[in-house]
Structure formats: structure tokens, C-alpha cells
Design a protein around this nucleic acid. Structure first.
Length: 424
RNA sequence: GGAGAGAUGGCAGAGUGGUCGAUUGCGGUAGUCUUGAAAACUAUUGAGGUGAGAGCCUCCGGGGGUUCGAAUCCCUCUCUCUCCGCCA
């Protein structure tokens, strides 16, 4: 969420940013927010003036009672009746405006960074990096879902039986490969300076609001209604919420965390052929990196994160590319996002395996995540996160790109984790 | 699940209706002293909103109520702790 003060002070910049996102009603949203804020402040001022007057009278009555002037004190009491009506009236009004303002602010997306390319569709994303030529597979190469069945490493049918579609069962070398990838990613992230953490896999309502899953994307999370808890869609939610309502010192930066968690997504309404196999699941594994940064250093940090993820994919020797997302394709909360895509050779399409973003103060505002600057003033921090990495599509990429007539080879860097070098 | 106790500023811990946004200690910051440090001493030290500013308003777990006035009384929710039960 953008702060109202930022919008007031940078109206033109906000309008230009919304235009870059191809938002049609940008100026409408901004005008509405500014009007609501003016109304709110007016009601608030009236409320506070009445409140101050009531406080003054109450103090006077208190003093009179202490002096034993009971009669005089009682005489003053009726004076407060009208004030209390006003306080109720303006207080309610101010609350109503504040609520409307809040709702309106929730509808305004983050302002894209200047380097974000113009564009409306995924085709307009800018390719900023491309690694390794796409391997030429042997005759008879097949998509990963066929390989999964052939080598009995992922059982989609069994998952259907015990839970439902989108909940595969990994078994044998498939299960071990999953575990190897998780361990490998965590080790690499730790070596890069990220503190490894194990957060809960369910969060409360306040955390859902903190990172913006609530109230809008409520239907995307699994909800345990009995306890009013939500299954996390990503480790970003619990880990970023560590820092909700926190005031940091400047010396606390940078904060770097990495966490492995399963991720649960209802993915309501997104069924079809393109979600076959591991391409889109309701439960999947992911290792996430989260950073809290000083605003002066957040873009430098973003580049560091991109380089880090790049290194992982290089070591795995997967064909991949990096895209800088265009204004129209960026997430609601992001100011700049890089997507990493691995080429699925057998499916002949690019699969997104990581998304690395700088949210600037957009998340921090909702989280109330601040730091004290040199002057002792509270300022919003910058938050960043990225997948490092998401397992299913990496798994798909590995199976498909490493398939040979003899079996599926295991990338060299993973062999010490798996204990085997071929799946056959 | 049953019974009881509790939730106050970074931490500890007072405060049971009227200058309490809150005594005090520790911690933090600045200064004095010192070659430097420690100790000691002095001062300062919560957050948010609003306003050009002085100031004003809000916040003692969340919400609601009583009252001229609530950290303090009442209701309710959440959480924590202790004991019992169950259990990895």
C-alpha cells in the first residue's frame, strides 16, 4: 500500500506510474483517495477539537471536586452532553472516511521503478539475460509427466486418491531428488549470508493482511476456519511478517533470511492442459530468500539476489533466461520484478522458476516495518524477496533436459546430496 | 478439554476512578571527569495522527460499555503462564 502522504506529495509521479501499468482508471483512483483524505482530516479535526474541550472541562470538574466545591462541579456536568454528541458524530464520521480511504488505497498498485519497460503483455517483458544453448534431446524424449511415470518417481494418481489433483506423491529417487534440491538451495543461500529459518506453515489473519494476501486474495489460500488460520502460499508470508510492527536500527540492515517451506495454493479456476504434471500444483516446495533493506541500498540488493539465483541455475546447468517484467505484467505490490524461466525442452516452453522483486516501501507500509534514520525519525524500510528456488518446475526442467536413453542424469552439484547420479 | 493466574513504555516492574503518557530500576543516547576506557555524576530517552508552528488528539493486549473523567470499574475476545487430563 502506498502512503497517502506519498500520493499527496508525488501526484504526477503516481499518475505516470499507474499509466505505465496500463491502469485505465488511475487518475480516478488518485483523485478519490485525495478527496477521501481531505474529508477524513476535516472530520478528525472537528472530533479532536470537541475532545480537547471535553478534556478541559473534565479536568476542571476534577479540580473543583478536590477543592470540595461539589455543587459547582455538578453544575458543569450538563455542559458535556452536547460535546459528547459531537465527539460521537465526528468520531464515527472520521472512522468511516478512514475506512473508505484505506479501502481505496488498497486498490492502488505499487509505482514501477524507472527501469521497468513499457508494455501490456508477457510478450513485452524485456529479456535481460540468456544462459546456455537449449540441449538437443534424443529421439523419443518425452515430457516430465511421462518420465515421472516411467521411472516411478512421481505418482500423480496416488496423490489424487488421497488428497486430490495438484497434490503429487514423490517416491524413491524422486523423493530423494526433492530433498537434495532443498538441501542444496538452503546450503547455497546460507553460504551467501542468508540466515536459515523454519517458520510455521500456517499463519493468522494479521499476517495475511501484513503481506497483502488479505483481504483481496483470500480465495487463493487454504483457510482453516475452525482456528481461523491460513496455510501459507509462500514462505514470504511468515518470514516477512517476522518484521511486522518492528522498528529497526540503521545498523540492523541488511536482514537476510532463507526458508524452505511447502507452499499451498488453491489456484481457483486455473485448470486445463497447461497445468499438467508439475507445471501448477496446489502443494509444492520452495526455498525463499527475503531481505529487509535500507532504501538507499535496496536496488543494489536486488541485483545481488538476481546474481545469486543466476548462479544456482548455472550450477544446475539448466537453460534459462531472465526477464525484466513490463509494467503490464508486474505483480500488484512490486516496483521491479525479474522472472527466471527454465526452458522445458520436451514441452517446448519456458517455465517460471523464480520471481525476484523489490517492493520498496509498499509492503513495509502495511507491515509497519520501519527504521530510525540519523535524525531519529521513523522511516519505512524496503522489503525484497525471491524464490531460490521453486522445486516443481526445476524438477520438470531437470527431468526433461537431463533425460537420456539410459535414464535421467543427476546434475553434478546434486550428486553429493542424492547419493546417486542417474535415475533409471 | 477442565481449574486458576495474568497481559503496563527496549527489558524489569509500580500504579485500583481526577495534572498518569504513566513512579522507579536496568538498558540506550549525549555530556562532565579521564591519555583512553570503566566507574561515578548530570541530562535525555515510547509510538501514531493532525497542524506552518505553539499546540492539540489517540495509544497501558484487541473490541465494547459505565462515568463529567478510566491503565484503574463492568462485558467480551485474543494471547501467555501454572496445575490436571490427553498426546508426538
Amino acid at each position: 500500500m502506498l502512503t497517502i502522504n506519498f500520493i499527496k506529495e508525488n501526484k504526477e509521479k503516481v499518475l505516470a506510474g499507474l499509466a505505465k501499468r496500463n491502469l485505465k482508471n488511475g487518475s480516478e483512483l488518485v483523485e478519490s483517495v485525495l478527496n477521501l483524505d481531505a474529508e477524513r482530516r476535516e472530520a478528525l479535526t472537528a472530533f479532536e477539537m470537541a475532545q480537547a474541550e471535553l478534556n478541559r472541562i473534565s479536568k476542571e470538574i476534577g479540580t473543583l471536586f478536590q477543592q470540595g466545591k461539589t455543587a459547582e462541579a455538578n453544575e458543569m456536568k450538563p455542559k458535556t452532553v452536547e460535546l459528547k454528541d459531537q465527539i460521537k458524530l465526528f468520531g464515527d464520521k472520521s472512522d468511516e472516511w478512514a475506512k473508505l480511504l484505506q479501502d481505496a488505497l488498497y486498490k492502488i498498485p505499487n509505482i514501477p521503478h524507472q527501469s521497468v519497460p513499457e508494455g501490456k503483455m508477457p510478450e513485452d517483458n524485456e529479456q535481460v539475460f540468456r544462459e546456455i544453448d537449449i540441449p538437443v534431446l534424443h529421439d523419443g524424449a518425452v515430457p516430465h509427466w511421462d518420465l515421472a511415470q516411467k521411472y516411478n518417481i512421481i505418482d500423480f494418481e496416488l496423490g489424487n486418491k488421497i488428497t486430490g489433483a495438484g497434490f503429487p506423491v514423490y517416491r524413491g529417487k524422486g523423493a530423494k531428488l526433492q530433498r537434495a534440491l532443498i538441501a542444496y538451495f538452503l546450503d547455497k543461500n546460507s553460504a551467501a549470508g542468508y540466515e536459515e529459518v523454519q517458520p510455521p506453515y500456517v499463519v493468522n489473519e494479521a499476517s495475511g493482511y501484513g503481506t497483502g494476501q488479505l483481504p483481496d486474495k483470500e480465495g487463493q489460500m487454504y483457510h482453516c476456519t475452525l482456528d481461523n488460520l491460513y496455510l501459507i502460499p509462500t514462505a514470504e508470508v511468515p518470514v516477512t511478517n517476522f518484521y511486522r510492527d518492528v522498528i529497526l536500527k540503521e545498523t540492523d540492515f541488511p536482514i537476510m533470511n532463507t526458508a524452505y517451506t511447502p507452499c499451498f495454493r488453491r489456484e481457483a479456476g486455473s485448470y486445463g492442459a497447461h497445468v499438467r504434471g508439475l507445471n501448477r500444483l496446489h502443494q509444492f516446495d520452495k526455498v525463499e530468500i527475503v531481505r529487509i533493506e535500507h532504501p538507499d541500498h535496496s536496488y543494489q540488493a536486488l541485483e545481488t539476489m538476481v546474481d545469486h539465483v543466476k548462479e544456482l541455475l548455472r550450477e544446475l546447468k539448466l537453460p534459462f533466461r531472465i526477464l525484466r517484467l513490463c509494467g503490464g505484467d508486474m505483480g500488484f505490490t512490486s516496483a521491479l520484478t525479474y522472472d527466471f524461466e527454465v526452458y522445458s525442452t520436451a514441452q517446448e516452453k519456458w517455465l517460471e522458476v523464480s520471481s525476484v522483486s523489490n517492493f520498496e516501501t509498499f509492503q513495509a507500509n502495511r507491515l509497519k516495518l520501519r527504521y530510525k534514520d540519523a535524525n531519529g525519525n521513523s522511516q519505512l524500510a524496503h522489503t525484497l524477496n525471491g524464490s531460490s528456488l521453486a522445486l516443481p518446475r526445476i524438477m520438470a526442467g531437470l527431468l526433461e533436459n537431463y533425460q537420456t536413453p539410459e535414464g535421467i542424469k543427476v546434475p553434478e552439484v546434486l550428486v553429493k546430496y542424492t547419493g546417486f547420479d542417474i535415475i533409471n
